[in-house]
Structures are given as structure tokens and as C-alpha cells.
Computed example of a mutant assay.
Amino acid sequence: MTSRSRIVGGQILLAALVVLGLAARSATLTSADISLNEHVAAWRDPALTTLAKAATFAAQAAVGVAAALLLPAVLWLLRRRQDAVRVLFTLGGAMAIGYAVKIAVSEKRPPQRLWVIAPDSVQSFPSGHTTIAVALAVSLVLLVGSSLRLPAILVGMAFAATVAGARVYLGVHYLPDVIGGLLAATSAALLVSGVMQLPVARRHLDTLERGGPAHAAHANGSHISVRSAVQR
């Protein structure tokens, strides 16, 4: 995909996220969502509840923030600086988009009688846990080599699906909320990827990968010195 198509795709998903959020507040859709949550509540058992709570813990806001700070730091130290920038803005961008839309839409949580655990905020759309899970899954796929790409995709999809299902299962989100989380993270990933492919961004990222302006100037100076010596 070209940088333009990725940026446009990210904008389309972002628009779809906002439209879905506004639709989620309608009485008709809310009634259908509550009915679905009531059906899901009938499937609860101790083992599934334990799994759902573990999935929720693994994708909580603190995990997302820690990953957004620590992963880029580790990648930077490993001199994978473009990957560090990509992961930082993919995770940070996904959470920022999710939070902004959550405040703007301000959808109420499902009825308290359906809760297994207390939600961490009063707004329901989009699911922050699902947003973080999908963003982590995308980051995993971006970081592995081509030989591990397919396993990473499968693991990431399983993790994101488990977290999304857990949030509905625990009664703290509606189905559109977790779909919204998927849209928030995917739009952020596309926008970041598209912007990083722009020529001006590529130049800066290539310089960053080589060690920054100082390193580039030193390398250029060394090259000039060698060339002068050869000419003499």
C-alpha cells in the first residue's frame, strides 16, 4: 500500500469509528446490545470468568502505557530506531484516539446488574482494553521477522479477540464498543504507517536510523577527509 492509501484508509476507519459511536447511543441499538449481553451472561462459569478477568488485566490501561514507553526504549537501545518510533506512535496514537472518541461520544456503560467487575470509567465506547489489545497485536506483527509474521498474526488475533470477548462477557461493554476499539487501533496503525512512508518523514527516519545528524555529519566529514587524502 502507498502512503496515501494508508493515510486515507486510516481516515476512513476513523470516520467509521465516530459514526459507530454515535449510532451506539441510539435507543434501538442499545436495546439490542443489552439483549445480547444478557444472553452472554447466561454462558458464564467460573473458568471462563477467570480467563476473562486475566485477559482484562493483560490489556488494562497501565499495561498499554507501560508498553508504549518501555518497548520503544528497548528498541532504541537495540538501534531499531524506526521501529521504536513506529511502536511509540502506534500504541500512543491508538490510546489517544480511543480516549478522545470515548470522551466525545460519552456512551453509558451497560446496566450495573450485568457487571462482573466494576468498569474503570463511566464511558463505554470504544473499549479501551480492546484498543490496547489490538495495538499490542499490531506492534508484535511489526516487530517480528518475516519468518515469524504468520505466527505473530495468529497470536495477536487470538489475544485481541480474547480481550474483546472478555469485555462483553464481563458485562462492562457492548459489542459495538469492542468493534470501536478495533477501529481505533487499526486507524492509528494505518495513519502512523502512512505518515512514516512520506518522503519528508523517510528522510528524517533514515537519518535517525543512522544515528542522527551528528553521526551523519561525522560520517560525511570522514568521507571528505578520505577523498582529500586520495586526491593528494
Score class of each variant (00 low, 15 high):
A41E: 10
S26K: 09
D177A: 05
I179E: 00
V226W: 13
D120A: 09
Y174E: 03
S228N: 15
L48G: 10
A201P: 09
A23V: 13
S228W: 11
I12L: 15
P199H: 13
G93Q: 14
A201H: 11
A166D: 08
L154D: 00
G171V: 08
S127R: 04
R81Q: 04
I7P: 09
Q11W: 03
S193G: 07
H129T: 01
V105D: 02
A219Y: 14
A59P: 04
H129E: 01
I117L: 02
A52D: 05
I117Y: 08
A166I: 12
Y169P: 07
E38S: 15
Q112A: 11
L70A: 12
L17I: 00
L69S: 01
A55C: 03
L182Y: 09
T49Q: 08
Q60N: 05
A184S: 09
A58Y: 05
P111E: 00
L170Y: 01
P111C: 04
A16S: 14
S139A: 15
V8D: 03
L170T: 06
L13W: 08
R86K: 15
L51A: 13
A47D: 05
S26Q: 11
A61G: 08
T50Y: 06
A58D: 10
R81G: 10
A66Y: 01
A47L: 14
E38N: 07
A73T: 11
G128S: 09
P72S: 01
A68P: 11
